[in-house]
Design a protein around this nucleic acid. Structure first.
Lengths: 158, 158
DNA sequence: CCCAATTAATTCATTATTCAACTTTTACGG
DNA sequence: CCGTAAAAGTTGAATAATGAATTAATTGGG
């Protein structure tokens, strides 16, 4: 049988590491959201802008954008609709596959990105990056990378 | 004036660390959510259960519970309403301060907690804790703790 | 002792997320 | 080629989160 005493409970150290990670995740997202608010953007908006502005021709297929932002297609579809209404993005149909659509950054979206990015970077530095010693940040990266890889494999289709 | 070249953009290393942290946060929450689904609980439900089950008399004031779960009072209020409907929790009025309410774990909530906790711990181990070398987990904890502290100070009232 | 300010918590309206159902187009096995 | 399966994306209804406004009780200075 399976009893309580079989359960490999977390040690105090592990508990603490875990809780700290959780707290940082949540608090950090909240803080970044707040820092973006004056510009009328959410974290989600911003991430879409980043992905599109880095992409070839400032456009990406809906599916690819959903994959790279780790969202469901449905959620992305709603998200893009909102951003389209805000004038940041537009949909364009894809010639090679008539099922497909591109999300394309508008000029306004591009300008918004250029204007907001410096502030966002400052925010990320202030509340995260600059709080680590350089070697700690490296350690973080190298120890987190396998976790990310594991989790990516674990999730089949979002 | 402030130009683009004044902006202290993230280095490649920093970018990578940052993105990895973001991805891990999101993928991990998703995975844990999926692992809790068979038990009919969400991450939020579970966290409330943990907090209440560790508390004196298995009860906490709404405000304290909101603070320790880093949620707004409004959100917590809705959350507790849902959990009350699910029979996991009940509200009890507070004698010493008639404005106040306790969220109290029901017997069903307690049983649910005891039943689900081992599976949740296993999930946390599988997708996070056990993916680190012991010394890396320590490093994570010590480098993340100041970040958590910083963020807690930064946010005034949620 | 009283009134203004604060605190506890909820409510309501708006916005966002989820999940399943649906449409259209493409791919592919026989 | 034909028909069935898979893929791209959207839609709509249900559920959840947010934020401002509200109610009710407490505190504390004059």
């Amino acid at each position: 049988m399976t009893t309580d005493s079989d359960t490999p409970w977390l040690t105090d150290q592990e508990q603490c590491a875990w809780r700290t990670h959780l707290d940082v995740s949540r608090l950090l997202m909240h803080q970044l959201e707040r820092d973006l608010q004056p510009f009328g953007l959410t974290n989600n908006d911003y991430e879409i802008l980043v992905n599109l502005s880095e992409a070839e021709d400032r456009r990406l297929r809906m599916s690819d954008l959903a994959a790279s932002t780790l969202q469901s297609k449905s959620r992305l579809s709603h998200q893009i609709t909102r951003m389209e209404n805000a004038g940041l993005v537009r949909r364009e149909s894809c010639e090679s596959d008539r099922r497909g659509l591109y999300a394309v950054l508008t000029d306004e979206g591009w300008d918004t990105m250029r204007r907001v990015a410096p502030h966002h970077v400052a925010s990320v530095r202030k509340h995260f990056i600059d709080l680590f010693a350089a070697e700690d940040l490296q350690a973080l990266r190298t120890s987190l990378a396998p976790v990310a890889a594991h989790l990516r494999k674990e999730r089949g289709g979002l």
